[in-house]
Design a binder for these strands. Sequence first.
RNA 1: GGAGGGGUGGCGGAGUGGACGAUCGCACCGCUCUUGAAAAGCGGCGGGGCGCAAGCCCCCGCGGGUUCGAAUCCCGCCCCCUCCGCCA
Length: 425
Amino acid sequence: MLDVRTLRTELDAVKAGLARRRIDVSDLDRAAELDARQRAALSEAERLRAEVKRLSGEVGRARKQGDAATAERLAADSRALGEQQATRDAEASALAAELRDVMLQIPNLPADDAPDGAGPEENVVLRTVGGDRTWADHQRVPHWEIGEQLGILDPERATRMSGSMFNMYRGAGARLLRALVQLSLDRAADAWEEVRPPSVVRTDTMISTGHLPKFADDAYQVERDELWLIPTAEVPLTSMHAGEVLDEAELPRRYAAYTPCFRREAGSAGRDTRGLLRSHEFDKVELMAFATPAAAPAVHADIVARAEGILADLGLAYRVLDLCTGDLGFGNRRTFDLEAYAPGCDQWLEVSSVSWYGDFQARRSNTRYRPAEGKGTEFLHTLNGSVLGWPRVWAALVETHRRPDGRIDVPEVLRPYLGGAETLP
RNA sequence: GGAGGGGUGGCGGAGUGGACGAUCGCACCGCUCUUGAAAAGCGGCGGGGCGCAAGCCCCCGCGGGUUCGAAUCCCGCCCCCUCCGCCA
């Protein structure tokens, strides 16, 4: 969430920044007003509280000196003030709760250099690699057909056991998926610690990343146990150091995690129902880092480079998008999306989203660091990006590398993970 | 799931209603001494909020409550440990 203090000193600038998202910014006025009322109530409560403490001390002293009458009189005064204080306190905490509710619903400010725009159409294509390639007829077959022909995908049975938008990979298809996951974890291992976090988390953990309270409908909830299925490994990883204060010397902290991701896809019923384009459960490898503000841009660039490197080495055509302010995710200041081209279904598929959050998430999860120079603590910056969302890569890959005989050529980098196989199945 | 024990500053560990945000030790930082280091001595040494400041307030796992006054008493929750049960 945003720092409330910025609403006191630079409300207009914050409004202008948020307006670039093309959203209604009236919540900010409400937040600023709640903040002012909250602080007024709190300082009055604190003043009364100090007086109660002072009087209580005197009660003790009077009693020690055996002056029961004075003690009783002071205790009565203190009691009266205490009642006033309780009222002001209750008022202050009700206002604080209300303020927090409002603040949790307010998205992050876009970075200054994020391109302006109203929606996805205005995202900026930074570069396209392999976009001028020509595609043969045998590559113009959608992956769901390829999956059926080769027996490597079994959506019917998956649907029977779990409902629509669930998938099942079989035989060489399942092995291919596992190979992709391993390839990407291995390629991150030089600088990113591999982690296998829980796939199910508490409500607080979901709030830290910004997935709750605003986007509850998008997530699966295990109500009986007050738990949520993670929509991405970003959720547990971002809470990795919740409540901790890290030393600047141990930064950046970088983590890589492979997890299943669960999404209800509430807003997209009926869209992309065929094949692997959109699923309630999918596998992804996520890179997530905690960095100082100064180091954040370099980490951001590193994640993009790593995601891009994998796409390039898998021989896929892809492009890199700089998301415009109108398409930026709730907590993001700047995001680069990577899209792989799938020739069979003739679509650019989002396979990675690499985001810088500033201190938006760290403020929610209370994750700080102690600067090497100077006093006190500062909130960290968080960054994360997929390397990559595997079902869509799987789709682009089998379409791109489909041979005239219908089998799939295995890109060289993947062969070590598939027993040296040059083709599948 | 049942029974019992426990959560205090970076660590260890006091504190069971009255000046305690907290004795003490270790670690750490500064200074003195020393060629340097060690030792010794002196001083410092958690986080957060409000305030121009002086200062005030909050935090002893978390949230409530009792009280003039709570680290201390009561209630709920979370986590850890031991034993029992169940279990891949």
